[in-house]
Amino acid sequence: MGQSSLEQKTGSSVRNLLFVPMYNCERQIPRVIEQLADVPPGFISEMIVVDNRSPDGGVAAAKAALGRFPDVPAKVMVNDGNYGLGGSHKVAFNYAIEHGFDNVIVLHGDDQGAIADLLPFFEPFRNSDADCLLGARFMKGARLQNYSLFRTFGNYVFNTLFSVAGGQKLYDLGSGLNLYRVKSLTKVDYLRNANDLTFNYYMILNTLAAGWKLRFFPISWREDDQVSNVKLFKQARRTLGLVLQFMVQRQHFLGTDHSGKPDRQYPSTVVYQQPAGQTR
């Protein structure tokens, strides 16, 4: 069978790191890892699953699932402390920079997004001057399954507020499928971002302030057996507070370390590693 155009163009010339953050995803992580079957050989140079000290059996489930893809270089890493979702991003971004990757793809371990949605947009992104490619649940072409109308309305409201604050139309503030150009990550202080679930909100405001060129693409999004860690009203108040602070006290916002972790250290321990039989 001949190579696909994506396969021919990417091959091994671009080094993509696939980063999967995980917390209490024992049931979902095998399905996320199975998505490796949906990408062409050469597209994923390495995969890291970063577990934020889950009390369930997610680590064991990830190891077993990765064993079905022995040709993919992969690691399962456990954070040495409770860093939150944002802290896990910092572990992965640091790893991508230190190991010389070109791009880092974020695919959440709760199996709500599909990496296949990103593939048609990769080549246009690669040949552009954009700094990131962000999955959007609320733009034309996106598909939502079992997502409440209340939460959809809330997202549209906050997308509008952040768009006004950032001076650019934003279609999503933080889905579970994003791609960042690693050389762009070296030019922003992402370690200042909050370590909790608001990490992406800080990230999008800081990157807009830094002059990043953001690109969005429509994704499919579903809620089946996932357990949400978001307390809606508390999260909404926090989100409103941070965007208002950005609008009113922009320089103070940008100059503040919101992480609550002044040592800026995010060590993580590799608990499983598999070399590649051949590069996928």
Score class of each variant (00 low, 15 high):
G2M: 10
S12W: 03
S13H: 13
S13L: 10
L18F: 05
L18W: 01
L18N: 09
F19Y: 13
V20G: 11
V20C: 15
R27D: 11
I29S: 14
I29L: 15
V32C: 13
I33R: 03
I33L: 15
I33M: 05
F43E: 04
D51F: 06
D56R: 00
D56K: 01
G57D: 11
A60F: 01
A61D: 01
A62D: 06
A64T: 15
A65N: 06
R68P: 04
F69A: 02
F69P: 01
N79I: 03
D80S: 09
D80H: 03
G81A: 12
G86A: 07
G87K: 10
G87Y: 11
F93S: 07
Y95L: 07
A96I: 05
E98A: 15
G100F: 07
F101H: 10
D102W: 13
N103G: 10
G109N: 03
G109C: 14
G109K: 10
D110I: 02
F125S: 09
S128T: 02
D129W: 01
L134S: 13
G135C: 14
L149C: 01
T152S: 06
T152K: 07
G154A: 11
N155F: 06
V157A: 10
N159M: 11
L161C: 06
V164P: 00
G167Q: 03
G167A: 08
Q168P: 00
L170E: 07
L173S: 09
G174A: 05
L179C: 14
R181D: 10
V182A: 10
S184C: 11
Y190W: 12
R192Q: 13
N193Y: 13
D196W: 09
I204P: 00
N206P: 00
T207M: 13
L208H: 00
A209C: 05
P218K: 00
I219E: 04
S228Y: 08
S228C: 04
L232N: 07
F233L: 15
Q235I: 00
A236R: 06
A236I: 08
R238P: 00
R238E: 08
V243H: 00
L244N: 02
Q245Y: 04
F246I: 07
F246Q: 03
V248H: 01
Q249C: 10
H252C: 05
L254G: 15
G255E: 08
D257W: 02
K261L: 15
Q265N: 14
V271R: 11
Q274M: 05
A276P: 01
T279N: 12
T279Y: 06
